[in-house]
Design a protein around this nucleic acid. Sequence first.
DNA 1: CCCGATGTGCGGTACTGTCTGCACATCGAG
DNA 2: CTCGATGTGCAGACAGTACCGCACATCGGG
Lengths: 131, 131
Amino acid sequence: MARLTQGELKVMRLLWEHGEMKPAELQARYPEPIKNSALRSHLATLLEKGHVTRRLVGKAYFYRPTTRKRSAFRTMLGELVDAYCGGSIENLVMNIIRSEKLSEDDLIALRRLADAEGEPPPPAGGGGRKR
Amino acid sequence: MARLTQGELKVMRLLWEHGEMKPAELQARYPEPIKNSALRSHLATLLEKGHVTRRLVGKAYFYRPTTRKRSAFRTMLGELVDAYCGGSIENLVMNIIRSEKLSEDDLIALRRLADAEGEPPPPAGGGGRKR
DNA sequence: CCCGATGTGCGGTACTGTCTGCACATCGAG
DNA sequence: CTCGATGTGCAGACAGTACCGCACATCGGG
């Protein structure tokens, strides 16, 4: 999918978070004050690019995201990884762990997560995976 | 620092990777074929924004990055984390581990890394931290 | 001296992202 | 009915991005 611009992203985040909405509600929830027409302009481009659809309810349109958050996330993540981490996700994670400050608890949680993911599938019954 | 555009980023990546260069060399290494004038146009904006400096050597300018790769990385990482992970880096890492496919070896390396970072400073003598 | 190679400055075009204004339709209250 | 509130479509201003071409300067070889 194509890159989301800053303005488009702000709208999408609201839709992902709160679901279907009409322009006035999006306007009210927009992080900064924004004119209704400006916001609708963003919606128009999102509609054109296919990131949202809308349906008429009474006299107002309700907008709903079609692009999934996870998909957009992956796109941006891919860009970042290509640009700064030689295309390797592992490299990215290493970078973050090494350079960003993660708390003790985070690292413990991380370790647990890595254990859970890394463990071979239990040979029998009980142990369910997290996903 | 301000957001780098796609074209600017491509130039900066070359400079980060290979160091000081003149336009013709950048042009030769540019991922796609690009006209010399187009490339110099990007350099001009980078210069204007202060992401690179140049010095005259003979009759040609050599361009050198002033913005650090790590700094640009953090900017983009921050955007991504804000937009998709509720502002929490830990959340980002969890997301990646859970959803991207990391190999067994990666997870092992990760676990080791988490251990190394997470361990309390040794009470005496020898052990230096990595950073 | 002339010429091609190399490099520079500058201007110009096309498209995108963001934001604005205005005209028009609909509906309920007075 | 008239009016304000709410909602829509559209046209366009405006800065920034990406790209391109042309004119000019310099240098070394024939």
